[in-house]
Design a protein around this nucleic acid. Structure first.
Length: 288
DNA sequence: GCCCAGGTGAAGC
DNA sequence: GCTTCACATGGG
């Protein structure tokens, strides 16, 4: 491992409170972070970065000098006041337990294309397997990046344009199975400009969701993940098998409740940061 | 062998 | 509208 402190311009320490980096990076919102002796190594856009958490800070080291750290502040949402958000959660037993169990859990703000493509690959896969598929995809079709000294090879997430040029066979070779044609069709819609990801963030959330759901392999759940994790629509509330289990078990024990009913409940019960609350329930269910 | 995994789309009522 | 099913692949 190199001595980051000695080289100018490629390390920076950000002071933060209530930021559980491990929980955040492993809570199934992003899939490219790897733990390497108490640090977290990943790629954000075209930046290789290594994050070292401390009690009241996160220290970032990049492979190349950086003058402007806004990309990292934005990705980690370092200027968000978590306490303000937690105050908007409903004051009930399940949320109190989830808040205790998930102290410091945050939502990231990811690149829309990477987030969209990643979640197209997520359907009926365990998080570990999603990580494996994406690692393989980046290795084969991403651009090589210069990693920090003595760190393993690193790659960018392949662009929509790059994936649009790929064949279904190439994609299937990355172990993504029946998701390959979905990813390919969506990449081609974006690469050909039939679909504009830049416009999604400017629409009202219902329209943005409907637009995303016109893409191949994107239904309600994946659309909600992208709305929440990439565009920051705080009301988006992805309901997967875990969240469904959480809602049924914690809020509707001994009653059979439809998915539609759960969505209506979520829209009214969890307040303006419902999506954030959802991530707490998700992580709570998976770790307890 | 079985069942399940941060689901979606198509076909059947 | 709703229910059922196929879809690859790997882990427990």
């Amino acid at each position: 491992m190199g001595n980051f402190e000695s080289s100018m311009g490629n390390t920076k320490t950000f002071s933060v409170q209530d930021y559980d980096l491990a929980a955040t990076l492993l809570s199934g919102q992003a899939f490219r972070w790897r733990p390497i002796d108490r640090r977290w190594v990943g790629v954000i856009g075209s930046h290789w970065v290594c994050l070292q958490p401390d009690q009241f800070s996160i220290t970032a080291a990049t492979a190349e000098p950086v003058s402007d750290w806004d990309w990292l502040i934005h990705y980690l949402q370092l200027d968000v006041d978590l306490k303000e958000i937690l105050l908007t959660f409903p004051d009930d037993v399940p949320m109190r337990n989830a808040m205790i169990a998930c102290r410091g859990l945050r939502l990231l703000r990811q690149d829309p294309w990477e987030c969209l493509a990643s979640f197209i690959l997520s359907s009926t896969k365990q998080i570990v397997q999603i990580q494996q598929i994406i690692a393989l995809l980046c290795e084969r079709l991403g651009e090589p990046l210069i990693p920090g000294p003595a760190f393993p090879a690193a790659y960018t997430f392949p662009s929509a344009i790059r994936l649009a040029r790929a064949t279904e066979v190439e994609l299937r070779a990355c172990k993504m199975g029946f998701r390959a044609p979905y990813l390919l069709a969506t990449a081609r819609a974006i690469a050909s400009r039939r679909f504009d990801l830049g416009r999604i963030g400017q629409l009202p959330v219902e329209l943005a969701r409907a637009e995303l759901m016109t893409l191949a392999g994107v239904g309600r759940k994946i659309a909600d993940c992208v709305l929440l994790f990439a565009y920051g629509f705080q009301s988006a509330f992805p309901v997967d098998v875990w969240v469904m289990k959480a809602l049924r078990q914690l809020y509707f024990p001994r009653r059979r409740v439809t998915l539609k009913r759960l969505h209506r409940f979520a829209a009214t019960h969890f307040g303006p940061n419902a999506g954030y609350a959802q991530q707490y329930l998700f992580h709570y269910m998976r770790t307890k």
